[in-house]
Design a protein around this nucleic acid. Structure first.
Lengths: 242, 242
DNA sequence: CACAAGAGATTGGACGTCCAACCTCCTACA
DNA sequence: TGTAGGAGGTTGGACGTCCAATCTCTTGTG
C-alpha cells in the first residue's frame, strides 16, 4: 500500500486504483467493506469512511444490505465536486488543454474587488489575466485578483496549472479555509469577447470565487468566464433517505 | 433532545437550533466536541460526525487545535450544498416566493427527454411546466419530465414546494440514488421568454437535472432556467489541507 | 407449486478508547 | 525583559466492538 497521506487517503487511492486496474464499469460490484478492510489491514471503520467519501464524490454507490458498486466512470467527474484543475477538465472532455497568460500587473482595484478583499481602495492589487484553450480554441477566461497580503511570485505563470488554491497554500503562512463561489449567467462583454473570440452578448457562465484563510481574510478573488458551448459544470449529489 | 431520525440527525438539529437560539454570528465559537457530546449524552465520535457534516454544508468551521466556529449565517445558505427548495432560496433573498403551475400534460417526449429517461420514443411522459415568482416577478422557469414509471399524482401542484426529490421518494417504491446536474449559460428562447417576461436572448442559467433510482433508472428529468438578475447559485467549499 | 420463514451476507449507526497534531497561553529561566 | 518550553485544551485519525436494518437466497411447509 502507498505510504503517503493519512490512512484514509491511502485507502481511497487504493480503491481508485482497484477500480481502474480491474477496468470496473458502472454497476460492477466492489468487495465488501469487511473483506477489503481485512486485505488492507485497516479497521472496517476507516474503510467505511473511504467508501462514504467516494460515494460523496459520486464515484461509487453503496446499497444497504446489498453491497457497494461503481457509479460513474471516474473520468467524467467534474469541477465542483472536487478541485480538478482546468487542464484536467478539458482533458476529460477529450480536448488538448493549453494556457496563455495575457498579463500580470499591479493595479488600483475596482470597487467590487477591494470590497470583496476587504482592503482600502488605495491598496494595490495584482491582477492576472489568463485564458485556457481547448484544442487552441479559447474556452475559459480568468481574471485573478490577489490581495496585497500575497507577496509571493509565481515563477512562471505560463506553467501555472490553474489551481489557485495550491499556489496560495504554498505562498501564505496562514491556512486556507474555504472557497465561496457564485454562479450566474452573463452576456459576454466587449472587453472579454476579444479573448474568448465570441460575439458580444453571447451567454457565458460567470463564476466568481473568493478564497478565505482561517482568519476570514479574503486573499484572492477570481472572475471566471466559461464559454458554454464546450465547457460546462457538472454536479453529482447522492440522495440519502436514512 | 428531539427523538426523530438518527442520532446524528438529532445532534445536527440540536446544533442548528443552538446556533440560532443563541444568535451566534460568524466567528462565534461553539462548545468543544467533548463538552457537547457529554451534554447530549452521545459519543464524541457521533458528535464529531455532526460537526464534520455541518462543516461540509458550510455552516461551521473547525480549526485543528483551536475550536469550532460559526461560518456563515445559516440564512444565506444556498441551493447546491443542500436541497433547499426554491421557496426557501427566494425567501432567503428577501423576496416573497409564490408558485404558478402553467400546465400538466401527457406528451410524446422530445429526443433529449426519452434518451435521458431511457424509454421508447413512443412512451408518453408527463410534462409539468411551472414558474417560481419572487415578489410577483417570475424568476425561475421549470419544466419537469416524469418517466412513465412514476404513476402517482400530485394532489395539488400549486402547493408543491419544488422539491421533486421528496415527491418522487414518496411516489416510488424504489429508493432514489443520485441527482446529476449540468449547469450552463444559455440565451433565453422565445418560448420561455413569455414566462420569464424577459427579452429573447437574455442570458439565463440553465440547469438540467436527472434523478436516478438505486437501479440506475432515470425517473425524472428537469430543465430549470434561472433569471440571473435575481437568482444565483452559491457554493461553499471547505479547504482541508490535512 | 406457491409462499412464508429463516439463514447469511452486507451496509448503517453508534459507542468507547487511544494517541497524534495543533494552537494558545503562561511560566520559568537566562 | 525577552524568549524558550511546557501544560492544557482542542480537533484529527484510527481502532475494535456491538447490534440494527436491509436485502438475497434457500429451505421447508401447506
Amino acid at each position: 500500500m502507498i505510504n503517503t497521506g493519512t490512512r484514509l487517503q491511502q485507502v481511497k487511492t487504493h480503491l481508485l486504483n482497484y477500480i481502474s486496474q480491474n477496468k470496473l464499469k458502472r454497476n460492477d460490484q466492489l468487495p465488501s467493506e469487511a473483506s477489503i478492510a481485512k486485505t488492507l489491514g485497516v479497521s472496517r471503520n476507516t474503510l467505511r469512511e473511504a467508501y462514504i467519501s467516494l460515494e460523496n464524490e459520486g464515484i461509487i454507490m453503496r446499497r444497504h444490505g446489498v453491497g457497494t458498486f461503481v457509479a460513474n466512470s471516474p473520468l467524467i467527474r467534474d469541477s465542483l465536486n472536487d478541485f480538478a484543475p482546468f487542464a484536467q477538465i478539458i482533458k476529460d472532455g477529450g480536448y488538448t488543454p493549453s494556457f496563455k497568460t495575457i498579463s500580470v500587473e499591479r493595479i488600483t482595484p475596482p470597487v467590487d474587488v477591494y470590497k470583496t478583499l476587504n482592503i482600502s481602495p488605495a491598496d494595490q492589487v495584482r491582477r492576472i489575466k489568463r485564458i485556457v484553450l481547448a484544442d487552441e480554441k479559447p474556452v475559459i477566461y480568468i481574471e485573478d485578483y490577489l490581495s496585497p497580503l500575497v507577496q509571493a511570485e509565481v515563477p512562471d505563470w505560463s506553467q501555472f496549472n490553474g489551481k489557485m488554491v495550491d499556489f496560495l497554500a504554498a505562498a501564505l503562512n496562514t491556512r486556507l479555509q474555504q472557497i465561496q463561489s457564485n454562479i450566474r449567467a452573463a452576456a459576454l462583454s466587449s472587453q472579454i469577447s476579444q479573448y474568448l473570440e465570441k460575439e458580444v452578448g453571447t451567454p457565458v457562465l460567470s463564476v466568481r470565487s473568493t478564497i478565505y484563510t482561517v482568519d476570514n481574510q479574503a486573499v484572492s478573488y477570481s472572475q471566471i468566464y466559461f464559454e458554454s458551448d464546450i465547457v460546462e459544470l457538472n454536479i453529482v449529489r447522492m440522495i440519502r433517505t436514512h
